[in-house]
Design a protein around this nucleic acid. Structure first.
Lengths: 195, 195
DNA sequence: AAGTAAAGATACTGTTTGGTATGTTTTTAG
DNA sequence: CTAAAAACATACCAAACAGTATCTTTACTT
């Protein structure tokens, strides 16, 4: 990796870390600079402003990362199992995502949506892809007989993703993984009702 | 109402409006002052600082408002119907809550949790009350035969509330009530699986 | 009506912060 | 090797903002 590209990645990575743990607005550019070896000149060489960095974090860091989690869903034969395992993985086993910090995409959405349309648009693209992948998985699950034919796959997808975002929010408040296991049990029961 | 109390309420009300639509951090005290007839002197007479105002908004405005929505849940005989109607009301019929702005409590939580424990605590109290009320309703629903005896009421509550918070988040992104109706249908199916 | 405390108005301050101007070093192309 | 462009460094600026100091008006009590 070229050196210039390395500093760019440093900024994005550290920027993501700080924003994930503290929020976008409470993370100042100075914060990023002081916790790295990057100077202001370098920062503004790579990004026109703070917003451009934020968008780069979404598009170049978060998007690809989430993309990989879709793979787990796609390689599982039974989508109901796939969905449950994905959620379990995201909530309990992924040591990149922490309870107390919630879901990066969800956090970002909540904080930025009211006043920044660019962010909303970028985030919406991510979530729409997720919805698409899950719906497709459920549809093929119907064909393979894993899911009841009467299932409205789009509806189930929306329902499941809502639950995920919500529980992440709740998890932050309580700062405790027991709500996660409780949620997962609830999800499990729900998914079984779709067979 | 005394005049002093009136200005205090003006601040809280306008503060809530702005925070609900724009977020806490993007709402400056100057914003509140310029959209009301209140001056800085008056503001700082009533509140020691911005945080104290935020907490007052949670405790004196949001808490009581949410309390009233619980009543709907408690007066319904069948808790499953009660839950569905409550959600439907909150999502589609309450013209105080807007799609594009989401759920005030959820928004606040997301924005403040990472850096302000006072806010988290106040918000957690609200949500814990909500959980309690819903669980109680479901428990009495079991006794009355509306809900299956095998139901884990706490689990169902967590599952339902997560869904609500999540869909509000999703609704903001898409800025469209169709996700709400989709969600409500999903919720309806889920609740029927508990009979 | 007068005196006192509550309530409100105005001007100001210190700091944070995003962003710029300008200069220096490093890399790359020819 | 050298010139030019890319990459980085430092000092500075203007705006926004939370909060304070001080002064004036309003409301209440006796």
């Amino acid at each position: 990796m070229k050196k210039a590209e390395a500093t760019r990645q440093t900024i994005l990575q550290k920027g993501f870390d700080l924003i994930y743990t503290k929020g976008y607005q409470t993370t100042s550019i100075e914060d990023i600079l002081s916790t790295t070896q990057v100077t202001k000149g370098a920062f503004y060489y790579h990004f026109r402003n703070k917003e451009e960095m934020g968008l780069a974090i979404i598009n170049e860091l978060m998007k690809p990362t989430l993309q990989t989690s879709f793979v787990d869903l796609q390689k599982e034969e039974n989508p109901l199992k796939g969905i449950y395992n994905l959620m379990k993985h995201l909530l309990l086993e992924n040591d990149f995502l922490k309870v107390e910090y919630g879901c990066p995409a969800s956090n970002f959405t909540q904080e930025m949506t009211p006043w920044n349309t660019h962010f909303s648009k970028a985030l919406n693209e991510i979530i729409q892809t997720w919805i698409q992948v899950m719906t497709d998985a459920l549809n093929s699950g119907i064909e393979k007989g894993f899911v009841s034919k009467e299932t409205n796959t789009k509806q189930v997808t929306i329902f499941v993703i809502s639950g995920y975002w919500g529980i992440r929010n709740l998890g932050r408040l309580e700062d405790n993984t027991t709500v996660y296991t409780t949620y997962l049990n609830g999800l499990n029961n729900y998914l079984h009702s779709l067979v």
